[in-house]
Design a binder for these strands. Structure first.
Lengths: 215, 215
DNA sequence: TAATACATACATTCATGTACGTATGTAAAC
DNA sequence: GTTTACATACGTACATGAATGTATGTATTA
């Protein structure tokens, strides 16, 4: 009712983000009204409209919160201590471990796959996702090209298509996971699930043979 | 305005299904009102409520329309003239060719991946999809077990996980496709995109070696 | 004549956005 | 160290516009 200290206000903002994330995940974005979120957070819509412009703005803020984790994960692809193939293998492991360990990321993943429409009014969201996806795919492709230079690729493998395939496989596995979030099969057997694709792309088992770590 | 012949009424019903399918695909299911659909079809909501109970009922009817095609596609998995591995390969080709050639199927695929929420109010839809998915995955697994009996699998490949991986790969590729429906990369290079997984699952290239057709 | 295939009209419920109120924190003036 | 003035962080109330479902009208058609 009354003004709160800056710190408390920031706390309210985080509460709204956490609550909205959970309610979006449970009911879907379109099916959730700002009143729903406010009630679940124990505040009124006034608080929401103070911190955010509208529902899309709120949702965007939720998605932006996980960018650091995602970027950090991408850094694995640049680890020069590993061969290109080993980098990709490590990257996939890190990706799914992150989804398992980070509840926030898992929820957002679930919302994107099952809980929101990405056309029409939410189209800007999709556009952002497209550009982000393309960027991520380009990084995979870059690493695969490095692998090609290192002679790690099987004959006839095109880095561009292999990147697209890998990326689609990751997305599909995430989708399968999100349909039954409590079923940990995807993460538990992630190596068995993705290794066939690695077998098909790389020679021998070069993605497992890591050069000796330094020091 | 007035009553029409039974045939014309059936025509109206199909018009509504076609129109709703298109509008759902363009704007998303939740963002589309029944008034939108009626206007696009050149009728009033009265016509919709005559033929369907509500939006969910209409959407269900849309989805049910493609069941025959999907079931027909599954029959490839039972083609006893092919080896298990070859059946799976053929099945994948058929699947993506169908998505390319059948505009209706492609739209519904797009709606499911990008244009509708599958939680909350639409949860029954998800449940149906889950059971259908599990059934489909079980068929893949069955064929993979047949392949195991025929000695076509690489060492260490578990049919259940391979089925889950294949199914996820297909879903992920469809998702990638639907993000840019006009980009035919996924279909055009579908063999290059899925063959790595086949390489990783099966021995040699047994999925390409088809036993001679009969007669 | 009775059921059909809609169109029309109405009632109700939400969800949104905004305008306004209000009490407190915060910083500067003195 | 008060006091003053303003910004902040909401709560409240309202106005508006959908969207839905249903009830009813109506012209055919079987």
């Amino acid at each position: 009712m009354a003004r709160k200290t800056r710190e408390e206000a920031e706390q309210t903002r985080h509460l709204l983000l956490d609550t909205a994330e959970r309610v979006f995940w449970e009911k879907g974005v379109a099916a959730t009204s700002l009143a729903d979120i406010a009630a679940a957070a124990g505040v009124t819509r006034g608080a929401i409209y103070w911190h955010f412009n509208n529902k899309l703005d709120l949702f965007t803020a939720i998605c932006d919160r996980i960018m650091p984790e995602l970027e950090e994960m991408e850094s694995v692809l640049l680890d020069s201590r590993l061969s290109p193939a080993a980098r990709l293998w490590q990257h996939a492991s890190t990706l799914f471990a992150l989804v398992r360990d980070n509840e926030r990321l898992r929820r957002i993943c679930g919302i994107h796959h099952l809980g929101c429409e990405q056309v029409g009014e939410m189209a800007p969201l999709l556009l952002e996702q497209i550009s982000w996806t393309q960027e991520k795919q380009a990084r995979l492709q870059q690493v695969l090209e490095d692998a090609a230079s290192a002679g790690q690729l099987r004959d006839g493998i095109e880095p561009r298509l292999a990147a697209l395939g890998l990326h689609s496989l990751y997305g599909g596995l995430c989708h399968t996971w999100m349909i039954n979030p409590e079923d940990n099969t995807v993460h538990q057997y992630i190596h068995a699930l993705i290794s066939p694709y690695f077998v098909g792309i790389f020679r021998d088992s070069c993605w497992l043979a890591e050069p000796a770590a330094e020091h």
